[in-house]
Design a protein around this nucleic acid. Structure first.
Length: 595
DNA sequence: GCCGTTTTCGGCCCGACTGTTTTCAGTCG
């Protein structure tokens, strides 16, 4: 059996597993770190590690003879001898226990050897029966924390024990905004959110807040007493961790104003990004921490070379500034050292939205209200949209209704002179890939954005074929939310063959959407990156179902930034005239191609 | 296990907080 087509993520998972098992074995920590580092590097590698030659692998910094040999064994057997030996030493549940808060390798092994505890469930049972506090080195408090940690599940959300529920980006952003407002009322002049929220991750596991001030204990104390706080997890002079009533953890850190930039950089992460930066600093005879970039000789960190702003830290390391959205430790530091970080699209580049809804279908606001909101949020063009038939539950429009409501839109034009108006349709892509409109009707529709809302459960190949068939229609200008996922509620359509879809889209000129609805974010950062690399144009959409939801454009922009996209990739950066020209031209090319 | 414009041996990212100790290991991010 061959495993030569194993993905980089698959190889990385095996190396991470090895690292965890080595930790349980109390191995040399630097050996463990070498495995973690190799896993991280392979996960972020541009090409498939299993397909690389030994020489190519050895040329990668962080991969040596040992790991290269492991990879070659993985290709043959799906694992490697050392890993298989380690797997025999510990029951698999022990690795699950490491996910429990307060349990690391040392304690997991201790509990296994003394009590035979080898799963999170047995751990809880042992805590309940009071066996844990009897073990030397452990105590009553740990026992309580194990039980408390599994007890405080946020209402209405499920989670695997030890893996806290994650919150969507948008509500987390709102919550962080609220907390920062509270902090400013408490007298903090400078406060910001950092962490995965600042990196724009689609969901966040906690909220990281940073403030400038004196770490004398009074600041963290005041933070811990905020009304939003449910329970204090840790409280020191420089740092406080709490669980919020909203059901998510919040870490608050306070640093002197003079090192605010260094702290913001450290606290924004990711962990992987920080490690790469710190290793780079080491190589230059420097040391990087949340207190600044210092010479190694300056052990007290009294004379930082850079600390005030993030910008000066990257500069002092010989790097281009790296926007937070790219700080995942996936090759961005190398890119920055070559001055190749792309100039990411910003909200200011966005001139309009094309996918949204009025109360003609399932929107909450009238066409006039939507248009007014679009004008107020500074767009220079706006395609007012609605669902097409035959989506009955949301009053999908037929072509006649499309045309009459188009006339209604035209009548609004004189009242909003700064806004150029168009009418779009979110076109049903039926089970066989055909449209809810005839070709002639589609030709008479200004902008066709195709979407699937039924028969999600097609087999992987069938769903891909359905989309490919739809793309053969010359009037399909863009594809909306292709995976159909609703984060936390509906899984993405069984692995779509994205490379094939994007190849086809590049050929037909069909754009793909990044949907900005908080629970969609579809394309994702990863698939949007693939689309961009394949040369597919991207349409950012609010999919607004009410006037207020036009603000979701900033979510779509954030996903696009994480995907490394520039304004050139994004159709919304075109002027109204150029956008209409893009539609006209792609349709005429597609018509020629289909003949 | 990996690495080297000080090194092929001796280093390896850095700091905060807790709990159980009695000066620090373990955990976390």
């Amino acid at each position: 059996m061959s495993h030569s087509d194993i993905s980089n993520a698959g190889v990385a998972a095996l190396l991470y597993e090895t690292a965890e098992l080595l930790e349980l074995s109390s191995e040399n920590q630097f050996r463990i770190r070498a495995y973690q580092k190799a896993a991280r590097i392979i996960d972020g590698l541009g090409k498939n590690a299993a397909a690389m030659s030994r020489e190519e692998l050895l040329a990668v910094n962080g991969i040596g003879k040992g790991i290269a040999a492991h990879i070659s064994a993985i290709k043959e057997t799906g694992a490697f001898p050392e890993l298989e030996e380690l797997r025999k030493k510990f029951p698999p549940g022990l690795r699950e226990m490491l996910k429990v808060e307060g349990i690391g390798a040392k304690r997991a092994r201790l509990l296994y050897e003394k009590l035979g505890v080898d799963s999170p469930a047995k751990l809880r049972a042992a805590a309940r029966s009071g066996e844990i506090e009897k073990i030397e080195g452990l105590g009553e408090k740990l026992q309580e924390n194990i039980l408390a940690g599994s007890a405080c599940l946020p209402a209405g959300r499920e989670r695997v024990h030890g893996a806290p529920a994650r919150m969507l980006y948008w509500p987390a952003l709102k919550l962080a905004g609220e907390l920062i407002k509270e902090l400013s009322l408490l007298g903090f002049e400078r406060a910001a959110y950092a962490g995965s929220l600042r990196r724009g991750r689609e969901t966040v596991g906690d909220i990281d807040l940073l403030a400038a001030g004196r770490p004398d204990g009074s600041a963290t104390g005041r933070f811990a007493k905020l009304e939003q706080v449910e329970r204090v997890l840790a409280l020191g002079p420089a740092k406080a961790s709490v669980r919020l009533k909203a059901g998510i953890q919040c870490d608050f850190r306070i640093v002197p104003g003079g090192v605010y930039g260094a702290a913001l950089n450290y606290f924004t992460g990711s962990k992987e990004h920080n490690i790469v930066l710190r290793e780079l600093a080491r190589k230059k005879g420097l040391s990087l921490s949340e207190y600044g970039l210092c010479r190694l000789s300056d052990a007290e960190q009294k004379y930082p070379l850079a600390a005030k702003t993030e910008q000066e830290i990257y500069e002092a390391l010989g790097l281009q500034f790296i926007p937070p959205e790219l700080r995942e430790g996936a090759g961005e530091v190398e890119l920055a050292s070559k001055k190749l970080v792309p100039e990411l699209v910003t909200l200011a580049d966005i001139k309009g939205d094309a996918h949204n809804h009025t109360d003609f279908s399932d929107g909450q606001n009238s066409m006039e209200e939507m248009v007014r909101a679009a004008a107020e949020c500074g767009f220079s063009w706006y395609f007012a949209g609605d669902h097409s038939k035959p989506l009955g539950v949301v009053h999908g429009l037929d072509f006649k209704e499309y045309s009459s409501t188009r006339d209604e839109l035209s009548a609004l034009a004189s009242r909003f002179p700064a806004l150029k108006l168009g009418r779009s349709i979110e076109m049903e892509i039926l089970k066989d890939g055909s449209f809810g409109f005839t070709d002639k009707e589609a030709a008479g529709t200004e902008l066709v954005i195709g979407a699937v809302h039924s028969s999600f459960k097609l087999a992987e190949t069938a769903m891909t074929e359905r989309m490919l068939k739809a793309m053969q229609n010359p009037y399909l200008d863009a594809v909306a939310h292709p995976s159909g996922r609703l984060i936390g509620r509906r899984d993405p359509a069984g692995a779509l063959d994205y490379p094939r879809l994007f190849q086809a889209a590049a050929r037909t000129g069909t754009a793909f959407e990044i949907n900005g609805q908080p629970d969609r974010q579809d394309l994702t950062d990863l698939t949007a990156r693939m689309a961009g690399e394949a040369g597919v144009k991207i349409l950012l959409s609010t999919d607004a179902h009410s006037a207020g939801q036009l603000a979701y454009m900033s979510i779509a922009v954030t996903v696009a930034r994480r995907a490394g996209l520039t304004r050139k990739d994004i159709l919304n950066s075109l002027s109204y005239g150029d956008f209409c020209e893009w539609i006209r031209e792609r349709r005429s090319r597609a018509l020629k191609g289909s003949r």
